[in-house]
Write a protein that binds this DNA or RNA. Structure first.
Lengths: 228, 228
DNA sequence: GCGGTGCTTCGGAAGCGCCCGAAGCGCCGC
DNA sequence: GCGGCGCTTCGGGCGCTTCCGAAGCACCGC
C-alpha cells in the first residue's frame, strides 16, 4: 500500500470523514462527541479514531476520563480543504449552495471563505504583506497596522510558519494561514467582528460557519477596505 | 456518503492511486499502460478507470482502439500533491529519500521540487511577479524577461488561470502553476535545461523525475540566479 | 469504597469492494 | 473479410473493513 493510497483511504471512510470535518475549525472534541457527529457507536468511533491517530491525521490528549482529539496540524486541515475543493467542483455535482459557509468559515484556526480570501487579497495587494521564501512577511506598514489592531504578533511568530497560503475550496483562491492567520482570526472573533453561528451543530459543515456582525462589517470596511 | 469521503475513497485504493500518480506529470496514458503500472488485469483496470472518470478525477479520450486517460485538470494534480505531502510528513514515516525526485519533477505540466520552488522564490522575490487576486501577474520587467527567454505568454494567458501557486509536497512551499508555470516548464524542457530521466519507468514516482543538464545548471544560474 | 461515566477491547456477523477468467464488442491492418 | 489487439461487460469468489453488543478498564464524585 503506497502512502498516498493509505492516507487517502483514511479520509475516504464516511465516518472518519465526518469526524475530520468536525475537527476542521481547529477545536478539540471528545471521542463521544465525535461518535455522535459521525452517527456511529462508541466502539466503532474508538477504532476509527485509533486509525486516524496512527495515520498521523489527528492528535490525542487524554484528560481524566475524556480523550480530546484535534487535527494533527495545519497541513491536515489544508489537505482536507483541498479535497473538499475537488469534491465541490461544478463538473462533479452542484455543491449545496450553502451561502453562509462560502461567505465565511473557520479552517484550522484561520478565516476562510469570501471574507478570508478577501482579507488575503487586501493584505497582499495593499502592501501589508510581501512574498518571501514561499510565504509572506509583514512590511513596515503591515506590521504597524497589525499591531495597532491588536494582533498578537509575538504569538504569530512562535508558530512553525508565520504566514503562508491555504487554498480555499469555495473560492479557489488562497486565504491567509500560518501563525498570522490564526492570530488575525483570533482577534476578529475576540472583537466580535466575526461570530460563530452554530458552533454546537451536529452537521459538520454548519459548525464551521462564521458571520460578520453589523459592527464587523463596518470595521472590515474601515480597517481593510473590505466589503464583506 | 459525503463528497469528501467519496472523493478521498476514490484516491484511497492502491490500484487507483498508482494510476493517478502515473498521470501526475500531465501526460496521457492508455488503459493498458495504466493496468500494467497498477499491476492489475485489464478488466479490473477498466472498472477502476470508469470509477475515476465518473468521479471527475480523470478525463478520457477515445482514439481508435485505444483509450487515453489523463488527469481531469490542474486541481486534481494539486490535490494529489497535497495528499502526498501529508503522507510524506516526517512524523508519519521517513519518506524514501528519493533525492532525484525532491530535486525536480513534473507536477501536472509544471516544474516541482527544489528547482520548482526555487524558481517560484526568485520570480516573486526579484520582481518578476506581483500578487493579484490570489494569483500572480507579470510585472513589466517580468514580462520582458519571460518574452526574451522565449516563453509563450500568449499560450499562458489562454489557460484558465495565468499564474497561481501549487503547494509542493516535498518542499512544503509553493511552486509556480497555471498557464505561466506550464509554459515555463515547456520552455525549460524544450531548451533541454531540464530533461526527464525515466519517462517510461513503471514506478509511478520515477517517471516524474526531472534533472538539470550541465547547460541547464549554468542557464538557471545566469537567467534566474538559481543554484540548482 | 462504590456506582456512574467515558472509553476501550473482544468476538462475531454483515456488507462492500476488489480481482480474475471467460466472453463479447469495436477498431485496425493485412 | 479475417485475424489480432485493445478494451469492456458479466459472473463468481475472495478478502477486507465496518459495525454492533457485551464485557473490561480507568477515572471521577459522593
Amino acid at each position: 500500500m503506497t502512502s498516498l493510497a493509505a492516507t487517502a483511504a483514511l479520509i475516504g471512510d464516511p465516518s472518519r470523514a465526518a469526524m475530520l470535518q468536525a475537527l476542521l475549525p481547529g477545536e478539540s472534541l471528545t471521542a463521544g462527541e465525535l461518535a455522535r457527529i459521525a452517527g456511529i457507536g462508541a466502539p466503532a468511533a474508538s477504532a476509527q479514531l485509533k486509525a486516524l491517530a496512527e495515520g498521523g491525521l489527528v492528535a490525542v490528549h487524554a484528560q481524566g476520563r475524556h480523550r480530546w482529539f484535534r487535527l494533527a496540524g495545519e497541513e491536515v486541515a489544508q489537505a482536507i480543504e483541498t479535497l473538499l475543493g475537488l469534491a465541490a467542483r461544478p463538473a462533479r455535482r452542484p455543491w449545496p449552495h450553502d451561502e453562509a459557509l462560502r461567505r465565511g468559515r473557520l479552517c484550522w484556526h484561520h478565516v476562510a471563505g469570501r471574507i478570508g480570501v478577501g482579507l488575503h487579497g487586501r493584505l497582499t495587494g495593499e502592501g501589508w504583506l510581501q512574498p518571501e521564501g514561499g510565504g509572506w512577511t509583514l512590511t513596515g506598514t503591515g506590521e504597524a497596522r497589525m499591531a495597532a489592531l491588536g494582533v498578537d504578533l509575538a504569538a504569530a511568530r512562535r508558530a512553525p510558519r508565520f504566514a503562508c497560503d491555504c487554498m480555499d475550496w469555495s473560492e479557489r483562491r488562497p486565504h491567509l494561514a500560518g501563525g498570522l492567520g490564526r492570530e488575525l482570526a483570533t482577534l476578529l472573533l475576540r472583537r466580535k467582528w466575526l461570530v460563530r453561528i452554530e458552533p454546537e451543530a451536529t452537521d459538520t459543515l454548519r459548525r464551521r460557519r462564521l458571520h460578520p456582525t453589523p459592527e464587523g462589517l463596518r470595521a472590515l470596511e474601515a480597517e481593510f477596505g473590505l466589503a464583506a
